[in-house]
Design a binder for these strands. Sequence first.
DNA 1: CCTCTCATGTAAGACGTTACATGATTCA
DNA 2: TGAATCATGTAACGTCTTACATGAGAGG
Lengths: 191, 191
Amino acid sequence: MGIKYTILGLLQYKDMHGYRIKEHIERNFGHMWSINYGQIYPNLKKLEEEGLITMKEVVQNDEKGPPRKLYSITQKGREEFVRWLESSPEKSMILRDPFLMRFVFFGFGDPDRALELIDEQISVYQEQLGRRQANLQRWKHGSIFVNLIAELGTDMNQMILDWLEKARKELVHHFCTDEAGIKKTVKMNEK
Amino acid sequence: MGIKYTILGLLQYKDMHGYRIKEHIERNFGHMWSINYGQIYPNLKKLEEEGLITMKEVVQNDEKGPPRKLYSITQKGREEFVRWLESSPEKSMILRDPFLMRFVFFGFGDPDRALELIDEQISVYQEQLGRRQANLQRWKHGSIFVNLIAELGTDMNQMILDWLEKARKELVHHFCTDEAGIKKTVKMNEK
DNA sequence: CCTCTCATGTAAGACGTTACATGATTCA
DNA sequence: TGAATCATGTAACGTCTTACATGAGAGG
């Protein structure tokens, strides 16, 4: 349901073909969304059938490069887009993270391995934070909304990193001061 | 793929039947995950076929209440669960939010309506924060991992609220000091 | 000519949601 | 008896992912 309107939104900036749309989404939202051709091409076909976009075939003589299909948003498409844009979002946020799913149950596994997995996550998010901060700079010129979304990306990233560090510290402390004195094998290599 | 292991994880605490599992997930993770019978019952059947859990029918004579199917985790199930638990998560976090999806494109809509939608979000997250903080108290006694996850919930909630307030302020400022002087209809009812 | 990138597409399957059907038990 | 709750299930639908098939153009 969402991709449909994302495509419509992008076509308001400029006419595009499927391949470009994917490229654009990946470049700009790649760290938050993923998209693939299995979603794009069927959605473009559907949007055209609904009269929200129109298609123009570009052949080799027109411009260089292989033939492609250029899509433009129609007036009807613009109207439908604004209707959606100004409607209240029906659903709430969903967050799904295979690491967090495991985390809840880490009590059933080896504490050392848990720390290793936390460290893996920390380096993943550190890398990502760097990329997001770079993007933030790249978009300084852009719309206020795009900028704010980019800021949300870094804010969120920072929050997760803070939480991971906090979790790491608490776990090390928890297993080292264990009254039972059983689980003292935990690695002490704190930074 | 995830629900399968969540069920396995819950069955390590105690034997349960499908209805209880749903109840449990909703009570404890309801603000983060949603689950429904269309996922639970087929997954239980599959887990049983794979020999990771076993089923025992409970009829009216055994205990009060309607007949149900009690599932227990097997040794094989425990092993498979730990294998999964200690494996590195294959995928990264996904966050999908219909509000955020709209937000990027708010430049194409009415600024007043954008502010209204932001205010709607703020009240949604304020309510949620209250519930999450209450849960945090309820779980104080629980495992360190469950506690940390609950803390992540409130941290995240707080971060989003901060961001929404920041976004609201910046937008009000942006549209009131607009050089073109066109969009001065923006509501000034700041708190 | 060969390979890489650009470009469009589809089929199969995993995953998730909604809505409904069914029946037992409990309690007013 | 009738309504609410407990409990199990499935069918239809929609979305998302993976993997593959196809082909044109560009550059070495």
